[in-house]
């Protein structure tokens, strides 16, 4: 824009040499657009939990506490014991323990059978469940519901307390079966 206007001005001044365009502007290292985010602004949105437990809040809960919450807030969609649906089946361990999902179309992808990380249960329930009131559960309630779902899947004992120290340590049997994408990496990067 500036370049063109400049060219016009030169013409108006009678300069014939101005027909050749000037070199395009180089992008600066930074544009200086946007504003710094304050720690409070970050904390208000930063709700994710990582597999090593980073991001888990204070608080705790047990399976017994979670059971009562589950009955009132979750069972209508996920079934009385988490196995019945109508929405996603959450509970169930396949006795074979061999991850035979590819051969068995009926085997439900439960937390016990399929989920590779226990922290994901906390992260997902806190952000998205129940769908009728997402984000409405307290951190203690989410810990309790997580404990209930992990215990129902035979992943932790009945009296285990779930908190930011214990949850990342829960062993998930399915984790060993996940592999990264081994498709051939592209020799030549697609042109954009």
């Amino acid at each position: 824009m500036t370049r063109i206007r400049f060219a016009f001005m030169s013409c108006a001044l009678g300069g014939l040499a101005a027909i050749a365009p000037l070199a395009a502007q180089q992008a600066p290292a930074r544009f200086g657009i946007g504003r710094p985010a304050s720690p409070a602004e970050i904390a208000a949105l930063d709700i994710d939990v990582m597999p090593d437990g980073r991001g888990l809040p204070a608080g705790k809960g047990t399976s017994a506490e979670g059971q009562a919450l589950y009955a009132t807030k979750c069972a209508q969609c996920h079934g009385a014991t988490g196995k019945e649906g109508p929405n996603d089946v959450l509970v169930g361990r396949d006795p074979r323990g061999t991850f035979p999902f590819s051969q068995d179309p009926k085997l439900p992808h439960t937390i016990g059978n399929y989920w590779p990380y226990a922290t994901t249960v906390f992260d997902y329930v806190r952000r998205a469940m129940p769908p009728t009131a997402p984000g409405s559960l307290t951190d203690d309630e989410v810990y309790a519901l997580t404990a209930f779902l992990l215990h129902a899947n035979d992943l932790i004992p009945a009296d285990a307390v779930m908190d930011k120290a214990s949850l990342p340590k829960v062993a998930m049997p399915a984790r060993q079966f996940f592999t990264p994408d081994t498709r051939k990496q592209l020799a030549t990067k697609p042109q954009r």
Binding site: T98, S102, H109, D181
Partner: peptide, 17 residues
């Protein structure tokens, strides 16, 4: 993890595909 991962016939599942 729970979704957008694909089980394979060799009893694994591919993630980040």
């Amino acid at each position: 993890t729970s979704k957008y991962t694909e089980p394979f016939a060799n009893n694994t599942a591919r993630m980040f595909s």
